[in-house]
Simulated scan of single mutants.
Amino acid sequence: MPLVVLCGFPSSGKTKRANELKKHIEANYTNRKIHVVSDHNNDVERNAVYADSRREKEVRGSLKSTAQRLLNKEDVVILDSLNYIKGFRYELFCVTKACHTPHCVIFCDISSDRASEFNLQRNEPDRYTQEIFDGLVMRFESPNPSTRWDTPLFVVQVDDDLPGEQICQALFDRKPPPPNQSTQSQPLSSTNFLYEMDRITQETLTAVMEAQKMGLPGDKITIPGATEKMELTRTITLSELHRQRRQFITYTKMHPVEDTARLANMFVQYLNNSLR
C-alpha cells in the first residue's frame, strides 16, 4: 500500500538503501509484499536518457505509471530513482493521495565529491559521464521537510544505518492523507453522462459558429436544448470555443449532475461568464 520515494545525487547509494529497506520489511512484516521500481529494471542507458530531456520525461512517466499500477492495500512500493525534481515528487504525492495510502521520502545525503568518487568506481556501463553527473547534481532539488510532498522525510548519510523501523512506522502506523478534489475520482451520475455532455457541448459550438455568420455583436443566440440565450458580445473564434468546451468538460466531470437535461443551460451560462 505505502509508497517509498528515494532521492539523491547519482551514485549516492539509493539502490543499496532500497534493498536494505526491502530486507527489513520482509524480515519483520512477513505479510507485506515489496515491489522495487527502478530505472534499472527497464535497461535504461542512463547517459543517453539524461542527455535527452524528452527521453528523460518518458522514463519518469513510465516509473510513475508502474508505481501507480502496483499500489494497493497490502503491498509496499519502493521507487528507486534519482527523483531529483520536486515537481515530480509532488506528482507522486498526488498519486498516493488518490490511492489513499501513506508515503515517505528517503534522502540519500552525500557530498557531490564523494558521489563522484563512487560513480568512478562503477563498472563502465553503469557509470555516468562526468558531464551528465555534473548536470544532474546542478539540477538536483533537495527535499524540504516543510512541504507536504517531502514529508515524512528521512535523511540518511553514507555511513548511517538505515532507520528501518522508523520508516515502517511512518508507512504502516500513519493515516494516509485525505484525498482532495483534484485527486479523487468522482462517479458519473448517469451511464450516458459523457456521451450527452459531448453531444450537447458540440451542438452548442456548432450553433454559435452558425449564428455568427449572420449575426452581429449584441445578438442573443438560441442554443438547442437550452432555455437561456448565448450573448454574442463579440466575434468568437472556433479555437476559443473549443478551449472553453474542454475546460467545461473537465470541470463537469468533477461535478457531475443527475439531470443531463441541465447540461445545455450550464454550458451556455459557462460561456456567457467566460467570454464576457
Rank of each mutant, 00 (worst) to 15 (best):
P2M: 02
T191L: 11
N180V: 12
P217W: 08
P256G: 03
E74M: 00
D134S: 08
Y84F: 15
R262A: 10
K220M: 12
G215T: 08
D75P: 01
S65T: 10
C168A: 15
E240C: 14
E231N: 15
N265S: 05
P256C: 02
Y84D: 10
I78P: 01
A48P: 05
Q166K: 14
G8V: 01
V4E: 01
E165H: 14
Q166F: 10
I78W: 02
T222N: 11
N265K: 02
E210T: 09
P224F: 05
R55S: 14
I249S: 04
K175H: 15
E165A: 14
N47A: 09
K73W: 08
L232H: 07
C94N: 14
A115H: 01
D39T: 07
D219M: 03
N119P: 02
N83H: 04
I110L: 15
K97V: 01
S65G: 03
G61M: 06
L241R: 05
M214W: 11
P2R: 00
N272V: 07
E258R: 11
D219N: 13
S274G: 12
P152K: 03
M1S: 09
K33I: 10
A211H: 05
C168I: 06
A264R: 05
T222Q: 14
M230S: 05
I85L: 12
T66H: 02
D134I: 04
F118R: 15
Q184F: 11
Q212D: 06
E231V: 13
H103T: 08
N192K: 12
V36P: 02
T66E: 08
S53G: 08
Q130H: 11
R246G: 11
V156H: 00
K57N: 07
C99T: 05
N265T: 08
S65L: 10
S81E: 03
Q269S: 14
F267V: 03
E20M: 09
R246H: 15
Q247V: 07
I106W: 03
G87P: 05
V137I: 11
I249W: 07
Y195M: 12
T101L: 02
A261F: 08
N272R: 09
D80V: 03
L171Y: 07
R17P: 01
E45V: 13
A51I: 05
N28V: 03
S116A: 14
L70I: 00
A48N: 10
F93I: 00
L241A: 08
R246E: 13
M1L: 06
D39C: 04
V44P: 00
T30K: 15
G135M: 14
D39H: 10
D219F: 02
T183R: 06
T96N: 02
G218N: 02
V49A: 07
N28T: 13
Y251V: 08
A170P: 03
A170H: 06
T129I: 09
S65A: 13
S112V: 11
R60K: 15
S116R: 15
F267R: 00
T222M: 11
Y251E: 10
I223N: 00
L271Y: 01
S116G: 15
V155L: 08
N119A: 06
R46W: 12
P143T: 07
L194V: 11
V268Q: 04
T15A: 13
W149T: 06
F9T: 02
S189C: 11
T227Y: 09
P187G: 10
K33N: 10
N119L: 03
I78L: 04
Y90R: 06
